[in-house]
Design a protein around this nucleic acid. Structure first.
Lengths: 193, 193, 193, 193
DNA sequence: AATGAATGAGTCTTCATTCAT
DNA sequence: GATGAATGAAGACTCATTCAT
């Protein structure tokens, strides 16, 4: 990776960090440039504008999520409970490692212009659909207590994603323990004990 | 209520609406003044600055939440499961009615200067403590499956509060049905079926 | 003196103090109102606007100066040196007692609109004329070394008025000593030893 | 000198002119920008804020004064009277050429925040010290009538600096004549005739 | 005579963005 | 690819002043 590519990556990294810490609107291009160690104008050599910089961060995160889930789904067990547990564990694992990206992709979607917003929205819907499908299969198979797969999916995703509101690396609980804990909560919530 | 008091209330209402819709940083005092129908300077007759306006909205919400829960808690049943259900139902009921306040109080806390931030944080902690206490009592009584009351409390609150990310008044499901649904999810998650 | 008159006097006093301390432009009507303990609007019951408030302070000062000098001049000795000494002593005595008024009337003249400016200017010219006349008489009588009465007058006035840039009440030197000191400086400067 | 450097110099020049004419508080960054022919924001590429712009003008003036006096002092005669005369002539010559800088540095010191104020104050004290030293030497040598060197120094400086309150270039008297006149006043004031 | 709320213009400063170098 | 200077619009906030009460 050559010098300029490193600048682009640093912009990405610092923008992510700052957007997550203070919010998209509260961060100026000057702030990002200052954190990277370049002048504001230099950013425009790598991203056409602030919106597109945010969009790049969000879009890349959603793509990585989709790809990671695809790999996971390829080796998914057959049994509904195992599938649900796998999803829960995957979600915790993936999200707990990327608190900034997750925070951004939940909090700063609204900062996108509608055209870009809908593209991220669609990627998110697709991912939510994976959980919904598992819930529907489990419900059809009589394995889960799920009257309304959509509502249950939203509730479980909120619960799982919420881990980032309190988890701090190096805290009392290990990531593995948290994964176990949340997986159990999810399974019990659909009465799959 | 006289003319000026109405202006102050309108500022509160429009600021809440706009902050929730676009985020604190993305809303200007001009925007709020415009929505109210006064000049920007007039806002400063009622709130000393933008920070304090946000703080007023958040603080008042947290106080209303605390008061409402106090009233609820006064008539709380004795049995752990019933207590937990009551909390879940209360939380859904209270939050589903105030999507803007809830959104704000979760998303824009960071916009507060540290001094004001900690005051809201403390109010939130107190409320979270109520759920934690119920979980601890239930666990002690052997009524719930709760290894870690703190983590379970955080998970359940995230799940419950998450209702606002998808619920839109007038949608497919009535508020009562949603309340029932979430209450059941919560009870099952602690294996209290 | 009744209540409202006291308010007017307090406005005068606080405005004088604040204008002298920070400058006319740097002081807001709110500052003055706050110092007096009333709301800004109340000032307008006593002075039509900020300009006229400044003008009142300056004009009253110049009138008091003119009156005081008139009284002094009525009992002026005949001899040029004694007249000059009397002027110097009077000037020091009068100015050292009113540092705020003096400061204002030298520094904030320019803050006046031209129409009001010329009125204060004229009062000042009249006072300067008194010194110039003494110098001219003394020069004509061969008592002083004064080639250019105007320049000498300006130089001596600057020297005398300058006392306020360093004199602080309660300092090392008494007012009387300072008066003696400056009187001697003035007399020597016109070689009247 | 390239284009941008010219902008910075023009900002300096116009700010000096406007501050001297109307006072620091009465001049807006818009005024300065307008006089220079740029947008207000452009000023901030050269000076971090209005305070620092004023401080730059004052500090540079004081430095130029110190340097000029240093050069003068290097060739100072030995005799007290000649030294005092040299100081008086230097002061008049230097100040009569820079009415705006002088006006600013006497009138707008108070507009500086304390931290910047003390730095200019210190530079001024150092310069005043030069005159005081001459007076003390002359007094010690029995050449001057100076009871209190500090008071005499303040009085003489006020007199000399006062030249700017009335001198207008192109007036009745040449700069040389004024220099002669003030030098004589100063010498006589310490009875060094 | 005083208040409290309002106005409309203005304050300093910051911003995203552009562009010649 | 990066800089430094610039723009034009907008930011929060303040101001002198007015006026109904």
């Amino acid at each position: 990776m050559n010098r300029p590519a490193r600048t682009k990556d640093m912009i990405r990294a610092e923008a992510l960090r700052l957007f997550a810490a203070r919010g998209y609107e509260a961060v100026s291009m000057r702030d990002i440039a200052g954190a990277v160690g370049v002048q504001p104008g230099a950013i425009y050599n790598h991203f056409p504008n602030k919106q597109q910089l945010l969009f790049a961060l969000l879009g890349e995160h959603m793509e990585r999520l989709a790809e990671a889930w695809e790999r996971e789904a390829a080796a998914l067990p057959a049994e509904p409970a195992a599938r649900l547990e796998a999803f829960a564990r995957f979600h915790i694992r993936f999200h707990i490692e990327r608190p900034d990206e997750v925070f951004l992709s939940y909090m700063e979607l609204r900062a996108l212009v509608p055209e870009l917003f809908v593209r991220i929205e669609a990627q998110r819907r697709a991912y939510e659909g994976a959980l919904k499908a598992i819930l529907e299969e489990g419900a059809a198979a009589g394995a889960f207590t799920v009257d309304d797969p959509h509502v249950t999916a939203m509730a479980l995703l909120a619960m799982l994603t919420g881990v980032n509101t309190w988890y701090r690396s190096g805290g009392r609980l290990s990531k593995t323990k948290i994964e176990n804990y949340y997986a159990a909560l999810v399974l019990r919530a659909v009465q799959c004990v």
